[in-house]
Design a protein around this nucleic acid. Structure first.
Length: 617
DNA sequence: CGTGTCTGCCCC
DNA sequence: ATTCTGC
DNA sequence: GCAGAATGGGCAGACACG
């Protein structure tokens, strides 16, 4: 079979991009996969998904928007402001690149590259690092783009940005795999199950090409290969949760970092480290080999990043567990051993680091609340009912200090649920997780086996919504480009200083109609420069400024200290954990509605300060 | 050696 | 993370 | 109801530059 040309690949992507029906996309993708040979099909899968490797290999480009602007400018001899202004208008660097390539009259075309050649070059560029690497990346990417057709450039330029905007992702690609081998619903289900425990489409398609679906049967849960985490859905009321779930258990929802912990002790049986090490060598990674005596521990984040080296205290505690092998799911959160209080999310985040790990571990001790057991002593528990998995988890003999089992209470009424919810809220926690006791561990799925119910759902997250002044807005990307806006900057009023201070950028909560309405309402308010009474950090500079005129109602989960937002900055009131000069901002801001209010009737900095204080208790 | 800018399928 | 939209 | 694509605040890391 001949190797596929990148131009031909690009034409296929173009077809996919202009197709809305998922069924049709599956057909096109199945054809594409069928046409590609086994050596290149894995690479084609990764490229389709805007990547070079499966997520848990984390090949980082360190090239995104800003650098790609430089690449396009350099590649096609166009001034950077020109590229930037076209980007603002089109909202997509691929389209800009395609246009520039079409207009480019310099020498270029170096023949028609194969997909694999483009892939290899992108991988080489991604791996370049160290002094001077940014410049080399710009030059190499520019040279690569000049060798491609305009359509090829369109997609190649989007790959380092990590999004091809084709309207499909992993799941659709899996369906295409099933169709490729002439399968139906059953086969989709089968392949998806395998993908959930080996989240590497490239690998799965290679196995299928070589050995068919039969070959996939060999793929099982493996210590050292992350399982896609199960995710929770939300529901609006507790009554609906009880109605939907029947008999379930309630656990507290902690505001920390999700961890999937793998443990393998070479006690009896074969340790499964061989394949792990060989895969690492394949990707030429250095230094991540775990030299722990007698026990291999791997920790993965929610997005399957290997974060083992960031949590040596967790590794040490897990190594002591009296089991041969296990995979556990849990939440890590920093706490203060003196007050026994859990710390805010921002503090826990400081534990996610590469340097000064031991020092921060001492400053910010963790609790890890384990809430699920996916694998135990060589056997997968994914199909085991949650009630039974929980029973096995409780038998694990945790140290009770760093490793704890999450509190877990069986519930069958809204009354009991409410009681637990109130209890956990009073402890300063985020809310509750409700889990069906009879459900398997649904790796990779967000469904109603797990339902989260947060403080904010009660309208208790923020004491009140915020009425913010719209100070300016930002050009939209992708599908927001057509509205001319993708987000806006909101501020609150400081009557003492007679000025507006920023509290959040808002980019969600508006329907398409509301985005259009936004454009209409904002048109007459546009001014050339930032009004003098706006206090805005440099990094929040808007694409268009507005004079005071439009006020909107904003909801959020929380008021937090902010290093960039200026709201209530300098109000000399003690803020726990805040640096001097910190302002306040909103966590997870979203628009509720447009309001007919005067700018001076916007929420004031004192009111925001009061909301912040109320939260602390 | 600091400081500033950009990046991350980052974490949430 | 939240939210909206097309299928 | 699912899959996908818009978007948020805030943190540490990687480089570039002076």
């Amino acid at each position: 079979m001949r190797l596929m040309k990148f131009s031909s690949f690009a034409r296929c992507l173009r077809e996919l991009e202009s197709t809305a029906s998922r069924k049709e996309m599956v057909g096109i993708l199945a054809e594409l996969l069928k046409r590609s040979s086994e050596e290149e099909v894995g690479k084609i899968c990764y490229l389709c998904l805007g990547r070079l490797a499966p997520v848990y290999r984390s090949v980082e480009f360190n090239v995104a928007e800003k650098t790609m602007l430089k690449v396009l400018s350099f590649s096609f001899g166009v001034r950077e402001d020109e590229v930037r202004s076209r980007y603002k208008k089109l909202g997509d660097l691929g389209s800009v690149a395609e246009l520039l390539r079409g207009e480019y009259r310099g020498a270029g075309r170096g023949g028609d590259l194969e997909v694999a050649e483009v892939y290899n070059e992108l991988l080489r560029i991604a791996r370049d690092s160290g002094a001077g690497s940014q410049e080399r990346k710009v030059h190499s990417l520019a040279a690569l783009l000049r060798k491609l057709s305009p359509l090829g450039v369109r997609y190649c330029a989007r790959i380092p940005l990590g999004q091809l905007r084709l309207g499909f992702s992993d799941v659709t690609l899996i369906e295409a795999l099933a169709v490729m081998v002439g399968g139906g619903k059953e086969e989709v289900k089968f392949i998806r199950q395998k993908f959930n425990i080996r989240p590497d489409v490239g690998e799965i398609v290679r196995v299928i090409k070589l050995h068919g679906l039969e070959g996939l049967k060999e793929v099982g849960v493996e210590i050292g290969t992350p399982i896609l985490p199960a995710l929770a859905e939300r529901m609006p009321t507790m009554e609906k949760i009880v109605e939907k779930l029947g008999e379930f258990a309630v656990e507290p929802k902690m505001d920390g970092i999700r961890l999937q912990i793998h443990l393998n002790k070479a006690v009896n049986g074969q340790p499964l480290v061989d394949s792990l090490e060989s895969q690492r060598e394949l990707f030429n990674e250095q230094g991540s080999k775990k030299e722990s005596p007698g026990a291999l521990v791997c920790i993965f984040s929610r997005r399957l990043d290997d974060v083992t080296d960031m949590f040596p205290d967790v590794v040490a505690a897990v190594q002591k567990l009296p089991v041969d092998s296990a995979i556990m799911d849990g939440e890590a959160i920093a706490y203060n051993p003196d007050t026994e209080e859990f710390l805010p999310f921002q503090e826990t985040m400081k534990r996610k680091r590469k340097y000064n790990v031991a020092q921060k571990a001492a400053e910010l001790p963790l609790k890890v609340f384990l809430f699920d057991l996916l694998f135990l002593n060589g056997k997968s528990l994914l199909e085991t009912a949650f009630g039974e998995r929980r029973r096995l988890l409780e038998k694990l003999v945790l140290d009770g200090n760093l490793l704890m089992a999450a509190r877990h209470t069986k519930v069958n009424s809204a009354r009991k649920l409410k009681k637990l919810f109130d209890l956990y809220i009073s402890e300063g926690l985020e809310g509750v997780m409700c889990k069906r006791l009879d459900s398997p561990y649904q790796a990779g799925a967000r469904n109603f086996n797990w339902v989260k119910y947060k403080r904010s759902a009660e309208g208790v997250g923020l004491p009140d919504t915020v009425d913010g002044l719209v100070m300016g807005y930002y050009a939209g990307r992708g599908q927001r480009a057509k509205f001319g806006v993708g987000a806006f900057l909101a501020g609150v009023f400081n009557p003492q200083k007679d000025r507006f201070e920023t509290i959040a950028k808002v980019g969600t909560g508006l329907t398409d109609d509301q985005w259009r309405e936004f454009s209409r309402r904002v048109g007459p308010l546009e001014v050339k420069a930032k009004p003098a009474e706006y206090c805005v950090a440099k990094e929040l500079e808007c694409d268009a400024w507005l004079r005071p005129g439009l006020v909107v109602e904003i909801d959020a989960d929380e008021v937090t200290c902010s290093p960039v937002h200026t709201a209530a900055r300098g109000l000399n009131i003690v803020r726990t954990g805040a640096e001097n000069g910190a302002g306040l901002s909103l966590r997870f801001p979203r628009l509720v509605r447009f309001r007919d209010k005067l700018p001076e009737e916007a929420t004031t900095v004192e009111e925001i300060m009061e909301m912040y204080r109320m939260q602390q208790t």
